[in-house]
Amino acid sequence: MNSKWRLRLVTILGACLACAAMVYREDTIRFSHRLHVKEQGISCDSCHKEVAAKEPGLPREDTCLECHDRDNCGQCHTNPKQPRSWAKAVKQGVIFSHPAHLKATEGRCEPCHEDVAQRQSPRESGRLIPHDACMTCHRSEYRKTDCRKCHPDLAENPARPTSFFNHDADFVRRHASLAQGDEQVCAHCHRQSFCADCHGKTEVLRPSERQSERVDKPLIHRGDYVTRHAIEARLDPNSCARCHTQRQCVTCHEARRVAPGRGGAFTHGMPAREWASENPADPNRHKFEARMGVASCAQCHDRGPETNCIRCHKVGGPGGRPHDDMIGSRKDPMCRWCHKAGGP
């Protein structure tokens, strides 16, 4: 079997898996808060019987059967032949007392569960209370970023970020600006090893390799990054320099024989003559690229006179004198590459 057919086979198998996931239906419970609460006027504590004394959880099946016929399974179960038990209440790792809050709201559920009586499906009913609802009363804790008062152990039981802490949109791009001044907020949920998973300066594996099973996460450098990294580095050179060290680039380029002086076939993505030439009529593209992304050049070439610009750009060299006027004090370290102490 040749490679084309192997590729096609894997693609077809993948498509089958995807279809199977769409066709497979699990049993769920039909339940409408609107029908029970709004239309039939049943009070919350008729079903959530223990809410005022301890945590409510969800009503047991026995509670439903006080009104519903046990033999008519299909009334509530979407797949009565393979019934599943009702999901348990989701534990969010939040310090919360229903009895204490019911005292504060004088027994009313609506201040927190604002529109629960309108909800028609378990999916809607299971929706978490938005963070904003808590903020109606807990603004002082929010202002002090005292998350632990309600979320004692966010590192172990992270709540889904909501409102201000929303990690949707382009959070990967945005998170640096937030972390710079509010790192103590990040630290509520994320330990430094979480940051180091991507920012580790000597890390060998990319996050998408270490977490290859998280195909649903927008991890950077996914896929064939080895091939396309040169394109993305030219598009936004500072996005590389912001995190990566020279060592990370050099290690890989040396291993793959694409480092200078290693006898490799690294061509800067174009014919060598187009990139750098002693003939002034040639494009000499390297000078424009250096102006636009010098950090990319330095990743490989900033390793002494044998690798950097002054190998060619020197008085008498093919590149000529690199500057026309006095660009700084000769005491500057970079000037000393050519202008030795006490010399011309």
Binding site: D168, A169, R174, P237, N238, V294, S296, P333
Partner: peptide, 25 residues
């Protein structure tokens, strides 16, 4: 829905130390 708009001005020289010959750019 979450929307974001961003603007950045970036200077590759910013990450090059003064000790490097590449800081002439």
């Amino acid at each position: 829905v979450a929307l974001s708009v961003d603007y950045g001005m970036h200077d590759p020289n910013y990450y090059i130390p003064r000790t490097s010959i590449f800081s002439v750019f």
